[in-house]
Design a protein around this nucleic acid. Structure first.
Lengths: 138, 138
DNA sequence: ACCTAATTTATAATCATTCTAAACTGTAAG
DNA sequence: CTTACAGTTTAGAATGATTATAAATTAGGT
């Protein structure tokens, strides 16, 4: 077994999932990359079923992606109600979004000046601060 | 005809919509308010059909809200894929979102220190910068 | 190799949203 | 004031994403 595969098995076990053939294939599609990967469930499903002999059902893709999201191995990005994206970059960061081609680009936390709020909500604490920068051709 | 009603008719005409009974009712529900109103289409539909004798169809609510969004009289707020909100506050501002009760709170642009990006995308210009602050009980 | 609980899968169900086409209405011309 | 017609409303159908179901299959321990 390769180092990569045993790494996937660890991720799966940490997500309370047994390492099955289908889930390993999903891990390969998601994590065997040099760049971060922004995708919709449909993107991932198409990628998996176009390239592989053994089909993986849509339900399994949904279940596995959501388990990884819940265990912190994937981040969900909220752009708008039409596009539900996930991100393999789980560090604290933000995004550019180009609506002309639905392209997402990471904006590293250090590439944005610290966000300072002058307003607080009594009885509430801040859970997260997300910035979305929409861009368009010049 | 009241001042308010003629204001609604102006909004409708500017949105390329004829002022019909249904659309005036929708305007009253949306714009006859002292505070900004955050709502989903379903919220608005329930509000309209619970309180009024004459029913308004869901399709008309969708059509009218989207026309107002396109003409700039409403702003769409992207929280997550489950909740598609609209906002009667069309000024440049941001939001707090409390997931425990799905409550949205405005964060005025002057209540946040100017956001400065150290990264640019060649060939692209910035269209909008949206900040979403998720909060939770302390 | 067996047992059992977890998993996969096709399919159905659900939910938000959009589409459709027939009935209705606002508007402007006569 | 009436008419004509394009715009509007509406119920219901269609769509598309997501979730649920339940029967067949599989993983992991004994």
């Amino acid at each position: 077994m390769t180092q990569k595969t045993s790494n996937y098995i660890t991720k799966l076990r940490n997500s309370k999932l047994r390492p099955t053939k289908q889930r390993i294939k999903i891990c390969e599609a998601l994590f065997d990359r040099s760049e971060t990967f922004h995708f919709t469930i449909r993107d991932l499903y198409n990628l998996l079923t176009n390239n592989l002999v053994h089909k993986i059902s849509l339900a399994t893709v949904y279940n596995t992606v959501h388990a990884f999201k819940n265990s912190g191995y994937l981040k969900q990005i909220n752009i708008d109600s039409n596009n539900n994206y996930f991100d393999t970059n789980t560090s604290h960061h933000h995004h550019f979004f180009d609506e002309t081609n639905n392209e997402l680009i990471d904006l590293k936390n250090e590439d944005i000046k610290k966000i300072e709020l002058k307003k607080i909500i009594p009885g509430k604490k801040i859970k997260s601060v997300e910035v979305l920068v929409k861009i368009e051709p010049e």
